[in-house]
Design a protein around this nucleic acid. Structure first.
Lengths: 339, 339
DNA sequence: TCTATGTCTGAAAGCGGTTTTACAACAACT
DNA sequence: AGTTGTTGTAAAACCGCTTTCAGACATAGA
């Protein structure tokens, strides 16, 4: 291992000078710098980052905790985070929890052990208190999710209004018997989307039949099964709001499996706008989240926290968009197949 | 910051003793250990990992370089890696290259700077020489891809035989005019799949029409466009082998857009077995790669290299599987719609 | 010529642990 | 009692780099 002392020796200067050439070249004479640079070149010297970090007490690394990296929505957010991280000279340490709360909180240690300068959480199911405590001491930002009643820095869309918009869109198409396949209700984000659904129904004075609201877990399978449940209960809605695209697609498959058509017999709307949602047939009407942008924004916010910059706004809400595609249609519309 | 000296002072021992209590408790008297433990407890002492790493010259971190984390195939491999990493007390640093060769090689520095103990590459488009050089000095394993003519540790399936099997499956269904939509040919993996395609054709003495072999880039769009090209050239094959599922689905969409049906008019087979491939309609016949297992195996291999264990086999080939679904059928089969 | 000012550089003290070395204390043997 | 061996602890060196502090030297001004 070639170290800074080797370079110093070779260039006939002190280690301090070598260090300065690397970090503040303007503070050292041109001629000396040349000598040092050459020695570095010849010896192929690579500074040991660990030592530098220990000295500076910073890691240039941030931790991202994800509930499921396999989920394309999260990986897109992650990419947004990564893109600005790299641009700012940071690396990202990945923590995939596999939707496991214990593993989620175990990642807090990494921060405490100074292995990362900050953290962005894409999931927040652990003890709110634990997160808040950590956040007091280290830079933390929540993305996508937030913690109820806490004012931690957060970047997300407004899930309530998004879900409300989705539901009102269906109502606008004439639907009244609208089913809802929600996400797991221990997640704030799911609660919000459900809340938005109820709000839309209430605003339009439509009574919600309790049995038409079912709790899923964001997987394709749960979407499929819960739609089948509607069939089994003989409570077929004319439209379904699913709290994410994967479940929406599951629901559509269930409808098709019963020989019915989407949107002719049942309209379906999802949430997230996965790439695949545009490809699926029928293509899925959905609420698009700016996933990449959420990631970017969250990372930018985190950078500001790390650099102790003035932050005027710690709760950032990004815009979602309703994307109309084939899976939704006006109630009772007379479909003329084949043009 | 409470440090080891504070603990030592509190417990009335030296810092060395505190350190020993933490790393080799058997080397210190029971009574002393108790005192120390209590002091640690009271002060809520957290050892500074950076300092430890600097001294031990290890990071307990591995670097994973991925071409595109958004691609569900890679994220699944990544998950496999992560699962064994966590089990062994390692963290994973993520490097997403966005398919950019420069960023790919820039990640090599992380290793040289000792920010990671080892690396697994899910992409290897950079200078083979650069990789080999790094691999001489640090533990490196390639997963999914490999480098031609090099004997670096590798975990993957046999892409040649996989592609051959896919093609021969189509041939077995009676197809002769088989089109191939390959991956980008600067990637070994793509070359191999193409090679497998040619092998299958040659073994069965079928002449390949050059125009029926087109180079895509693994995206849905390229699959769609190249299939459209077949139409435009008036060279419609009766079956198509696409080098991955995304392109296969793109091709199917193109076929459908022309008013033809899959598999009635054209059979399509893909490669990877994405989750979505089973959901898409028609569900996709494909070659399944054990993505998670590739990740696990690669990480296990890397662990052995890091621990300088004896490794009997450095090139590991895992089994792929042909999954028959709806997108492929016997040539000229008389389809009876509606059962 | 002598002092003031400024520019460069080197020595040394950390950063916060781990590990080696040395030694003290005590038990067990001749 | 004197020697040897064992065990537990403290002191100090070390990991490799950064940064402060002060000294050396050169140039400019008095």
């Amino acid at each position: 291992m070639v170290g800074i002392v080797d370079v110093a020796k070779k260039a006939n200067v002190s280690t301090a000078t070598v260090s300065r050439v690397l970090s503040r070249p303007e503070a050292v004479a041109e001629k000396t710098a040349q000598k040092v640079l050459k020695a570095i070149e010849v010896l192929n010297y690579q500074p040991n980052v660990l030592a530098r970090q220990l000295r500076r007490l910073e890691t240039k690394t941030i931790l991202v905790v994800v509930p499921d990296i396999t989920n394309p929505f999260f990986s897109k957010v992650l990419r947004g985070i990564e893109s600005v991280a790299v641009a700012k000279g940071y690396q990202v340490l990945l923590g995939d929890t596999g939707n496991d709360v214990d593993r989620e909180s175990s990642y807090l240690n990494i921060l405490q052990q100074k292995k990362a300068d900050g953290m962005v959480l894409l999931t927040a199911r652990m003890e709110p208190r634990a997160v808040e405590e950590i956040a007091r001491e280290f830079p933390v930002v929540l993305a996508c999710e937030y913690i109820e009643g806490s004012s931690l820095p957060t970047v997300s869309i407004d899930n309530i209004s998004g879900a409300r918009r989705a539901t009102e869109y269906l109502i606008g198409l004439g639907h009244q018997r609208i089913g809802c396949i929600s996400g797991p209700l221990d997640v704030v984000l799911s609660k919000d989307r459900l809340k938005g659904f109820y709000q839309a129904m209430a605003r339009n004075s439509i009574t919600v039949e309790p049995v038409l609201v079912q709790e899923g877990n964001f997987t394709f399978e749960s979407g499929f099964n819960l739609m089948m449940k509607f069939f089994a209960l003989n409570k077929l809605p004319t439209a379904v709001f699913a709290a994410n695209d994967e479940m929406a697609i599951g629901a559509i498959k269930a409808i098709k499996s019963k020989g019915l058509n989407v949107p002719e017999d049942v309209s379906v709307i999802g949430f997230d706008d996965l790439k695949f949602s545009a490809i699926f047939e029928p293509s899925l009407t959905t609420i698009a989240q700016p996933a990449f942008k959420i990631g970017e924004t969250a990372m930018e916010l985190l950078m500001k926290l790390i650099n102790k910059e003035e932050v005027m706004q710690e709760q950032i809400i990004l815009e979602d968009t309703l994307i109309e595609r084939e899976s939704s249609a006006r109630l009772g519309k007379n479909f003329s197949h084949g043009m």
